[in-house]
Design a binder for these strands. Structure first.
Length: 528
DNA sequence: CGCCTTTGACCTGCGC
DNA sequence: GCGCAGGTCAAAGGCG
């Protein structure tokens, strides 16, 4: 379309230019000739463009059609194989379905077992929704970002309030007006002894509920760093494993973040950016599984290969628990049954309910040494640890894991550095994630950064994917100021042997401890 | 005194 | 329409 209007505009300009030249030269005959030839040219190009558009439409529709067929077939296979495990694996399913409701076994069962007769219907709906939502998302990203508005093309996951937020006061009303229909959530699973994960932000508890299917109450927190900050989080212990804390973030901070909070914000932001960048463009362009097809491939036409993070990503379609939220889950628990193997990024729930796989990014490793090296002690209790989850990315972890499987030994610093370098140089997604994380840190002084983060990250991602600014992302951004906090692993690398593109960066300020509830001793212990 | 948590009531959406 | 469940509100009370 843009092509057509562009060429038409070009022709018009040319025509105008021709006309003016002829007027100047008082050359009426020539003008007529030019006009005629211009018209002919225009007509020809219009036909060409129409033809091209038709072909494009046809090809796109054809691809979608084949894709639906493929998906149907694949899902039948998956459903068949999973049906036999439904009953025995249900508890596991519950612990795995982070994007979905672990509290609603009825629903799980319904989806897993009895909804089979509705499968084709649901599939259709799902696909339809997928296309719709994708469009919606892209639109949100591209066009809804008007300047000065706090419209969050929400990378971090935006506060969803279209359900039950009442416009009780002007503030709320204002917020609810800004909120787009579809938001993303970032859910973080982590082993944590403390009541909440310290993420650097100030939170105020505003409610608590016992959710169905989980004896542990779910606590609702609101960000209190700024009075009108729409960010909320839900904290709940996992029913199956009380040591696992599930923290779900919604919303984008509309205020500068404390340094100690940027890590978590970056993490959720980057994770959601991957989710949204993937879901925003799901039209298949090659023969791969449609649900695994997403942005990078579309952006540059390349397949990201076997480590593509997008393999584990999927728009999370409405369900009872999160009616409109695409949800991304960062699984940072060690030894969680869901995805202890980094090569198996697809959550097992995917097998049970292939239509609604939650987005799950597993940052777990079977190898305790790696876990130790990469994730500290495997407990996500501070933002430094958490930050790593996004910094390193899946590809890196997979390479790391592979290295370890091959070597049967903990990786050396050099090996880690090499792996990291390779991962960063070969995985545009990882670069974009890192860039996204850094960008949120670098720009923390400006509220606009938060507001426009979505677009920024997408843009960055695009640039990176196109390979134009990888240097910018991997070195400039990281070195842009000394305040950046790419901690942990990067620090170790830079302080020891690594002399690559990365500047040594200071670790973030030790995470702030919740004023009352979190015993400082625990936090300090973890920090140390 | 201000900030925070607790907790029961209320609102809303959804399924039956 | 009713009941259920998730989410939110706001009064009451605690703590530093």
């Amino acid at each position: 379309m843009a092509k057509m209007s562009g060429s038409a505009r070009g022709l018009e300009t040319r025509k105008k230019r021709t006309i003016s030249i002829c007027l100047e030269e008082d050359c009426c005959v020539q003008e007529n000739d030019e006009l005629k030839s211009g018209k002919e040219e225009m007509g020809g190009e219009r036909e060409e463009n129409e033809e091209r558009l038709k072909m494009k439409d046809y090809q796109s529709l054809q691809l979608r059609f084949f894709d639906i067929l493929r998906r149907e077939a694949a899902e039948k296979v998956i459903a068949d194989s999973s049906n036999s495990h439904d009953e025995t694996e249900e508890p596991e399913l519950l612990s795995l379905c982070l994007g979905r409701s672990p509290r609603d076994p009825k629903k799980e069962t319904r989806i897993g077992n009895t909804a089979k007769h509705k499968e084709s219907e649901d599939l259709e709906a799902c696909l339809t929704l997928g296309l719709d939502s994708n469009c919606e998302l892209s639109m949100e990203m591209v066009s809804d970002q008007s300047p000065g508005e706090t419209k969050e093309a929400d990378i971090e996951g935006t506060w969803q309030s279209n359900k039950s937020v009442k416009a009780k006061n002007g503030e709320d009303h204002e917020i609810s007006e800004q909120i787009p229909a579809k938001k993303s959530r970032v859910s973080v699973r982590a082993r944590c002894d403390t009541p909440t994960m310290s993420d650097g932000c100030q939170w105020r508890k505003y409610g608590q509920k016992i959710a169905k299917g989980n004896p542990c109450p779910r606590a609702y927190y609101r960000c209190t760093v700024a009075p009108a900050c729409p960010v909320r989080k839900q904290v709940q212990r996992c029913a199956e494993d009380m040591s696992i804390l599930i923290t779900t973030y919604e919303g984008t901070h509309n205020h500068p973040l404390p340094v100690s909070a940027t890590a978590m914000a970056s993490t959720t932001s980057a994770a959601a950016s991957m989710l949204l960048s993937g879901s925003s463009t799901s039209q298949p362009v090659d023969n791969s599984f449609a649900s695994f097809t997403n942005a990078p491939r579309l952006l540059n036409g390349q397949n990201l290969g076997p480590f593509d993070l997008s393999r584990s990503k999927e728009v999370f379609f409405p369900n009872r628990d999160s009616p409109l939220f695409p949800t991304i889950t960062l699984d940072l628990t060690s030894g969680s049954s869901s995805s202890t193997h980094v090569n198996n990024l697809l959550p097992s729930s995917f097998a049970l309910n292939p239509r609604f796989p939650p987005t799950s990014l597993s940052f777990c490793s079977k190898e305790p040494n790696i876990q130790q090296a990469v994730w500290g002690n495997g407990v996500l209790n501070n933002e430094r640890t958490h930050m790593r989850s996004v910094e390193l990315g899946t590809q890196f972890q997979q390479q790391l894991h592979q290295n370890c499987l091959q070597n049967q030994a903990p990786p050396s610093q050099e090996a880690l550095a090499e792996t990291l370098t390779r991962a960063i140089s070969t995985d545009p997604r990882l670069r974009s994630v890192i860039a996204a994380a850094v960008s949120s840190i670098v720009g923390q002084g400006s509220t606009n950064v938060n507001q426009a983060r979505g677009g920024e990250i997408l843009e960055l991602g695009l640039n990176l994917k196109l390979g134009e600014h990888s240097q910018f992302a991997s070195s400039n951004l990281l070195a842009q100021n000394g305040k950046g906090c790419l901690p942990g692993y990067f620090n170790r690398l830079s302080s020891n042997s690594y002399t690559g593109n990365f500047m040594p960066l200071q670790p973030p300020v030790p995470f702030s401890v919740s004023k009352r509830k979190v015993p400082p001793t625990i936090s300090d212990q973890i920090n140390h």
